[in-house]
């Protein structure tokens, strides 16, 4: 099991700075750098969408007072990919959503590490991870929601679901909570399973062939991790 790494300090890499009280959408079809630092200044908002990742990708973000950050990572891969994200909610009322929709096939090994550190009062965090593991792919998700003593009134939740389609597909999930204040709503839920035979049967009884039925159910499975995206962005990322 890979352990969580503390704050990563990047010496190089790309930087995205969102000035106070501005609103931006950033779409990266092919990130050129493998490390990004994001700063969302007070009252600002950023939607960051990534539709592919290099084999190792680091994202470090800091979210200031009353600002919001939404990260959507959606891609299909046949190659090993590691995605590390470390997000600090440093200002009162900071809001972060991180959504990952991944489809891994062939022998791809996927590792996703996701840390939210709530450092200020009234912060809000949501992690929605949906992973489809096809063929003999393997996926590991490692998530930590950390609520510091001063982060009172925090509302944070992590959800990780893996759908095992391949005969030799494997999934590991390690969701963690570290809660150091009582004024908090913190929870997580994870599930690992396969496609429901009843649902497949139902769709087939309505005239879909097996493959189409599987495709439809897989799309529905990924949907929560794509919620909130405009049709234009969905078109861009190919969902």
């Amino acid at each position: 099991m890979t352990a969580a790494s503390p704050a990563r300090q990047f010496s190089s890499g790309a930087k995205i700075l969102i000035p106070p009280r501005t609103r931006q959408e950033v779409f990266l079809a092919k990130p050129t750098n493998n490390q990004y630092t994001v700063e969302v200044e007070p009252g600002a908002s950023l939607l960051l969408v990534l539709s592919s990742l290099p084999s190792v990708f680091n994202l470090q973000a800091s979210v200031a007072q009353d600002s919001s950050l939404t990260v959507v990572v959606a891609f299909k891969t046949k190659a090993a990919t590691k995605f590390f994200s470390y997000i600090r909610l440093v200002g009162r009322g900071a809001k972060v959503k991180e959504q990952t929709a991944l489809v891994a096939s062939q022998g791809a090994e996927i590792y996703v590490e996701n840390v939210f550190e709530h450092l200020a009062p009234q912060t809000f965090g949501r992690v929605v991870s949906r992973r489809v593991q096809a063929d003999n792919s393997a996926g590991e998700f490692w998530g930590l929601l950390k609520v510091s003593p001063q982060a009172t009134g925090t509302d944070t939740y992590l959800s990780d679901k893996a759908l095992l389609i391949g005969d030799k597909a494997r999934a590991t999930s390690v969701p963690k909570l570290e809660i150091l204040t009582d004024e908090v709503k913190a929870s997580h839920g994870t599930a690992v399973g396969k496609l429901s035979p009843e649902e497949l049967f139902y769709l087939q009884s309505r005239g879909l062939d097996r493959l189409a039925a599987e495709k439809l159910l897989t799309t529905a499975f990924l949907e929560p991790a794509l919620a909130g995206l405009s049709p234009r962005l969905r078109g861009l990322i190919g969902y």
């Binding site: 095992l164 597909a169 809660i179 690992v192």
Partner: peptide
């Protein structure tokens, strides 16, 4: 302080596994 450190390692595809955790006051 309350921590939750679960590990779910699933190497078979015919599985229904659920995990839920909540922390409240």
């Amino acid at each position: 302080r309350s921590d939750t450190y679960p590990t779910m390692q699933i190497d078979s595809n015919d599985v229904s596994m659920e995990h839920e955790a909540t922390v409240s006051k």
